[in-house]
């Protein structure tokens, strides 16, 4: 008898709760566009935030409502973007590929430190201890917060503790831009060939003492460039990329004495002008006594 009661009670309870679930499912059903799931499946699932949305799912929702274009997902390959556009029945916007670029060339072989930093292995932490000990206050600290932040394995530290961006792998998600405590990274369209690899607001001999490849603010590049393309501001050349002729030729870099302004060749990488002082040192530049 006890056995029968127990089974009956549980069976009754099961039936009751099942009914409740069925009713709830029917009553509280949310109509969702099935294309959202399908579109999300076509995305790379990187959840990197490069599109400006919190993740791939919100981006898929925006795609379906027409608020976003498949081209905004910089992580997808052109083929994947085309597939997605065909699936959604929209035209693929023309967008130029962007990459992260570092505005510093002061590796340990050319730039020197005023003090040795010891402590947490992080640029952000080092920057909080009197700037990190680097002679140049604006320069790359070389501990590699950007390498850690990069989720696409596109940033690697070179032997002189300077991050090198692999343009093929870089998806312009902007994580390195946020990670750098010295704000040296920025996202740049690949067609921009002229690039200033220095962020120092010091000038002349003062900055050369701390870094051999720094911009001395001599102004030769600004003089040689087409009128108005390069202006000197706060001891640095500023290139007006809004002009169509911003990367017409490499004339502005030819007389640069330190190689702070470079021509980014798609094949060879950064090219310094012929007048730039050669850096032959392989090891670290000796630190100055404090």
């Amino acid at each position: 008898m006890l056995f029968v009661t127990a089974v009956a009670t549980l069976a009754g309870l099961t039936a009751l709760l099942a009914t409740l679930l069925v009713v709830a499912n029917a009553r509280l059903h949310v109509e969702e566009d099935p294309r959202i799931d399908q579109a999300e499946d076509l995305l790379p699932h990187a959840n990197c935030g490069a599109c400006g949305r919190p993740g791939c799912r919100p981006f898929a929702e925006a795609l379906v409502t027409g608020e976003a274009n498949p081209a905004e997902c910089t992580v997808s390959s052109p083929e994947a973007q085309a597939t997605l556009a065909a699936f959604l029945g929209v035209a693929l916007e023309e967008r130029e590929k962007q990459v992260a670029r570092l505005a510093c060339a002061g590796g340990t072989n050319v730039a020197r430190n005023h003090a040795a930093y010891s402590g947490l292995s992080s640029c952000t932490a080092a920057a909080l201890v009197a700037g990190g000990g680097k002679g140049c206050f604006w320069g790359c600290l070389g501990i590699g917060d950007c390498e850690v932040a990069c989720g696409f394995d596109a940033i690697h530290m070179d032997p002189h503790h300077l991050p090198v961006v692999d343009a093929d792998k870089c998806t312009a998600c902007g994580d390195c831009v946020t990670a750098c405590p010295k704000d040296l990274f920025s996202l740049q369209p690949v067609s921009r060939r002229l690039w200033v690899r220095c962020a120092s607001h010091d000038a002349g001999d003062e900055i050369l003492e701390d870094c051999e490849v720094a911009c001395t603010a001599c102004g030769r590049c600004a003089f040689d460039a087409p009128a108005g393309l390069i202006t000197m501001r706060d001891e640095l050349p500023v290139i007006d990329y809004s002009r169509p002729d911003h990367s017409a030729n490499d004339v502005p870099i030819r007389r640069c004495p330190t190689g702070a302004i470079v021509w980014l060749d798609p094949e060879e990488g950064p090219v310094k002008g012929p007048a730039a002082r050669k850096v032959l040192r392989k090891g670290d530049r000796r630190s100055a006594a404090t």
Binding site: H114, A115, Y117, A130, G131, T290
Partner: peptide
Amino acid sequence: GQAVSSLDI
């Protein structure tokens, strides 16, 4: 206190 990185301050 704060560690000093340069004596120019």
